[in-house]
């Protein structure tokens, strides 16, 4: 799971190429697929947040906390403050996620393993409880989010959806490059060292908690961004965004895609969405079972995630 430095530039260009391929798809893809991909990219951002914490050995079962905060901030800012610009809304969402992470991080970074997982879960469920009690915010029904504008341009109909699709591709690509840089930076490498042996990192004169804290905040920021993007794309938010099964799904996708590369979460999210929508279509009564079997098979036969299909012939040492 380490990132050889000389691959940094090639990953950057690969992200750019992939983004261009997807962007070109705007005018080729059927609208339903573009919509599915928009949501999958948004979800991929949250999963990326889970993945970068997994690199530090921490599994968050409460990443939905930030996903939900992102979504609700976009919804509230657009409804109450009258902000309609997509970029401003997303910036607000990311900022709110980061603020929340700054507030919780001091406590959470004291925890490891299953205790970290459960504490993050508790936090997201407390937010869920608070939202369910808020009749003014529609309780469990949530509320709808108005279609955004883009730097003063307010597209209508199909153009609206295309603009959102392009936005999600651009945001995902920008974040992927940014996180990749972060991962191969010296801080990013220390994160892996913390997972391997925290005590020895301390011997090096570094504070593992400070490292984990910054990692936690970054993860929160991109997860909130993913939540904001979801709110803009689907046009609706509700407290289900914060519920523990949502977090579970993110972890599931993280394992499915693999933790080997910034691309993996996005591939995982797309494959998951596609499998799910066809399972629902082909087996309306038994789609959960279909999904479970397919995913179990993937875990059994591709223990390093879908990413190992692409990176298979790399030396084993690299992919640990």
């Amino acid at each position: 799971m380490s990132f050889p430095k000389h691959l940094a530039s090639s990953t950057g260009s690969a992200v750019a190429i992939a983004a261009l391929v997807f962007a070109a798809g705007t005018w080729v893809l059927p609208p339903w697929l573009a919509f599915l991909l928009t949501l999958a990219f948004a979800k991929g951002l949250v999963v990326l947040g889970v993945v970068i914490q997994m690199r530090a050995g921490l599994v968050s079962f409460g990443q939905a906390l930030f996903y939900c905060i992102g979504g609700y901030i976009v919804g509230l800012a657009s409804q109450s403050l009258g902000i309609s610009d997509a970029f401003a809304l997303l910036a607000l969402a990311t900022g709110a996620g980061i603020l929340m992470a700054l507030a919780c991080g001091w406590l959470l970074t004291r925890y490891r393993e299953i205790f970290f997982a459960m504490l993050t879960l508790a936090l997201s469920m407390i937010l869920y409880g608070a939202l369910v009690k808020s009749s003014a915010l529609g309780s469990t029904d949530g509320f709808n989010v108005a279609a955004p504008s883009f730097l003063g341009w307010t597209p209508q109909g199909d153009a609206q959806k295309q603009a959102l699709y392009l936005l999600s591709v651009a945001v995902a690509a920008a974040v992927a490059i940014g996180i990749h840089r972060f991962m191969v930076s010296s801080l990013g490498r220390v994160i892996e060292a913390v997972r391997e042996n925290e005590l020895r990192v301390e011997y090096l004169g570094l504070s593992p908690r400070a490292v984990l804290f910054s990692n936690y905040v970054v993860a929160a920021g991109i997860s909130a961004l993913g939540g904001g993007l979801t709110a803009l794309a689907s046009g609706h938010i509700d407290p289900d965004m914060a519920v523990w099964t949502t977090s579970g799904e993110f972890v599931f996708i993280a394992i499915l895609g693999g933790t080997g590369h910034v691309f993996a979460p996005f591939i995982g999210a797309i494959v998951f969405s596609v499998i799910r929508t066809f399972a629902i279509q082909e087996a309306p009564h038994f789609w959960q079972m279909t999904l479970g079997v397919v995913l179990l098979a993937l875990i059994l036969f591709l223990p390093k995630g879908l990413w190992s299909l692409i990176a298979r012939d790399k030396p084993a040492e690299v992919a640990t």
Binding site: F35, L36, L39, G142, T230, S234, G235, H236, D238, D240, M241, T246, S273, R276, T277, I280
Partner: peptide, 8 residues
């Protein structure tokens, strides 16, 4: 959930 239903 609602987001998934919007997609479906």
């Amino acid at each position: 959930g609602a987001t998934k239903q919007a997609e479906e």
